[in-house]
Amino acid sequence: MKTPYKKPAFQTSRSNQISGGDRSLAQEVEPAVCNTIRRNIGDDSAQIRTYELEIGRRQEQIRRLQNDIAALELRRQQLRAAEADVPQLPGPDIPIQARGRLGALLRILKTLGQIHDAVILADAVNRAVAVRQAEQEIDRQVVRKVAEIEELERQLAGFQDRLDDRVDWMKRHFKAFKDNGCEGSAFNSYRFTPSSRTRRLLS
């Protein structure tokens, strides 16, 4: 008589093993909410990344504008240094209002044949006027760039507020991840490498 076939022990079903004695495996299955938390972390990390990039762009634009203003102010100093070398004729100062009188004096000098003095005086008048015109253009450019910086700073503050709000939400996701006993690290669901500032806030 044939001996009936008996399955080896390793072929018995996993469900029988769990229901038979070792119930710890069934208890280790994480809650379904963990997958939702992971998706939320991924979605919010993408938004955080967007805000960080926008903030970085505006900070760089502000730095460039500040460098432009510094270069313009240096140009102003150079112009004033050049103006200090302008021959002071016929008195200690050549205000813009004196251009008419200086022009008349220039014509007199030419008529009298004092060409050398006329050339010096003409150069003094032209350079003084050119310096003042250049300074006025510098003023216009500085005012425009300051206004651009103020607008960028306003945008920067807006993106920073949105970033801070999203990081606060991310803190809640991380807490929920821990409270629900989700497996692994919450950072594993982060889509991008977080900035050092964000990592500090979440750690």
Rank of each mutant, 00 (worst) to 15 (best):
F187H: 03
R63L: 10
R64E: 09
G56E: 13
Q59K: 15
D85I: 01
A71T: 12
R58T: 04
R166D: 11
I138L: 04
A81C: 06
V167N: 00
T193P: 02
R39N: 14
A186K: 02
I120R: 08
S203V: 05
A128Q: 07
G184L: 07
R99C: 02
S24N: 10
A32L: 12
L106K: 06
E183T: 13
L105Q: 14
E52W: 02
V119K: 13
K7W: 08
A118G: 06
R199E: 10
V143F: 11
L152E: 13
F192R: 00
R166N: 08
R23V: 13
Y190V: 04
A128E: 11
L106P: 03
E153P: 01
I69A: 09
K145C: 04
L109E: 11
L105T: 08
K110M: 10
G56F: 02
P95A: 11
G56T: 06
R191W: 09
L112N: 14
E137Y: 08
A124M: 08
A26I: 05
A134S: 09
D93L: 05
D93R: 08
A82E: 13
Q136S: 09
K2P: 05
I120Q: 01
T111L: 12
Q155V: 04
Q47H: 06
P8H: 10
T12A: 06
F177W: 10
R191H: 11
E52A: 10
Q141T: 07
N188G: 05
Q27G: 08
I149T: 12
I96T: 03
I18R: 04
R63A: 14
D43Q: 14
Q11V: 01
C34H: 05
E148P: 01
C34D: 05
D44E: 05
Q88L: 12
R76E: 15
Q155H: 07
N67M: 12
A84H: 12
G91T: 04
L106G: 12
A82T: 11
Y51P: 02
A128R: 13
Y190G: 01
I18D: 08
I94G: 00
K178E: 11
A118D: 04
I48Y: 03
T12M: 06
Q114C: 05
E73M: 14
A70D: 14
R58S: 01
L74C: 10
D44K: 00
R140F: 15
L156N: 05
I18C: 09
L106W: 09
F177G: 08
R38T: 02
I18G: 03
F159Y: 13
A122P: 02
N180I: 01
E73F: 10
R57Y: 00
S196D: 15
A104K: 15
A32M: 09
L53T: 06
P87R: 15
K171P: 03
K178Q: 08
N67K: 13
A46P: 00
D85S: 08
N180H: 07
G103S: 03
R197F: 02
P194E: 04
D123A: 13
D168W: 00
Q17H: 07
F187G: 05
I62V: 13
T3Y: 05
Q77G: 06
